[in-house]
Design a protein around this nucleic acid. Sequence first.
DNA 1: TCCTGTATTATTGTATACAATTATTGCCTA
DNA 2: TAGGCAATAATTGTATACAATAATACAGGA
Lengths: 229, 229
Amino acid sequence: MSSITKSKSVTAEEITAQLSDAVHEHRLKPGAKLREDEVSDVFGVSRTVVRQALRAMAFEGLLAIEKNRGAFVAKPTLKEAHEVFQARALLEPSTARAAAERTTPEDIALLERHISEEHDALDKGKPGLALKLSGDFHLEIARIADQQTIEQFLKQLVSRSSLVIALYWKRRNALCESNAHHALVDALRNHNGSSAEDLMKGHLLDIYSQLDLRESDEGSTSLKEALRR
Amino acid sequence: MSSITKSKSVTAEEITAQLSDAVHEHRLKPGAKLREDEVSDVFGVSRTVVRQALRAMAFEGLLAIEKNRGAFVAKPTLKEAHEVFQARALLEPSTARAAAERTTPEDIALLERHISEEHDALDKGKPGLALKLSGDFHLEIARIADQQTIEQFLKQLVSRSSLVIALYWKRRNALCESNAHHALVDALRNHNGSSAEDLMKGHLLDIYSQLDLRESDEGSTSLKEALRR
DNA sequence: TCCTGTATTATTGTATACAATTATTGCCTA
DNA sequence: TAGGCAATAATTGTATACAATAATACAGGA
């Protein structure tokens, strides 16, 4: 929670945004607990508004709130991990196709700026930031498609993907996916919908295949935690 | 809010459920305001827990919370109405296909019970209840498919569909869709995935075509409300 | 030492008081 | 009478106090 800034009157939305960024960038890791008065101290507001923020994040699947125990950064199970990418496979390719018909030069500029920021982040040794930007890239495509409902779902799916990647990514220093994003931008620029759809499908499969989603003992659940439920 | 029962200690989830039912059954109509202390009086809890419930409903798209003004039953725009059914068209057919591979005799029994309850509700002149049951039928299929993530999204989409139907349904007394549901159950019983997929696709298109989604003055917004924004 | 039950502490859940904002009413004036 | 302004009321937003629950520490006995 280093780069969190406090100011005079912080809204619940700002807290949600800053904490969400921290989760996306893996500064807050799956399983981490967020105590209410700790967060309220950091942001200088009462627990009331902190609870709003935490509940909002729970709705997005970023946190799991356990009654009388508190809010924890979510730890998606293997099943949830599969489900997230199955849902993305249903939503994103056709959304990319729709986006291709509507992409403007300004959109292209924005997407390319996005990609270069992503590269910068990787160069500067900030893989968490790069991952967050990579997720935003996907959301940007839903925005271009002018599909707010799908964009909203996708926001949740991208959030959960970030947690899935934190838990199940095979090798830490993969140079991954920038090529796929470049190719997608090309397809969008040329208003080539079916190409965009195919590229997106392949891109998602590519990410999916880089995850280690074999059966295991469900991550690092401690004995104590296992016995609790 | 007639059939709402109060008991000694009501949780936010119960309030959410009861209010959601009221919205689904169109006892609470789009645009209706839910004042916090009114709801807290009805359920016998403090505003704190009521606000939890209202915010949860806002996340599902059932309510729109306007800052310093309160919570109102949502009024989906035409664009949102289109988006809801586009999203359903992406998610539900393939989910029905997946469900067909996993449907058990118990599932069939449950679904048939569902359909008969739906008929009962129609016979007894409770079209709102019938509509709610009809939505639950679709959720049940996602449950059978064992896709919790998609089920969660679908829950939101079905909720919003209920609002869309309240606002844009063409003729009030359509005898509608029970045949489609019967056909779907048959396909599921026979584990016929592609049939289930096709039937679902057609069923959604059928509902969609019975909506009056042409451009208009956005429904029955009052003059006062129209001037406010 | 290890287990168990109990006392203590820490943390979340709920209610309530107060502040800030918006809606309403009534009055005054043109 | 209509419009605007001010005062009042109604409603939501936030902070805080207290209650309920869970986690921890500790003591006693096998």
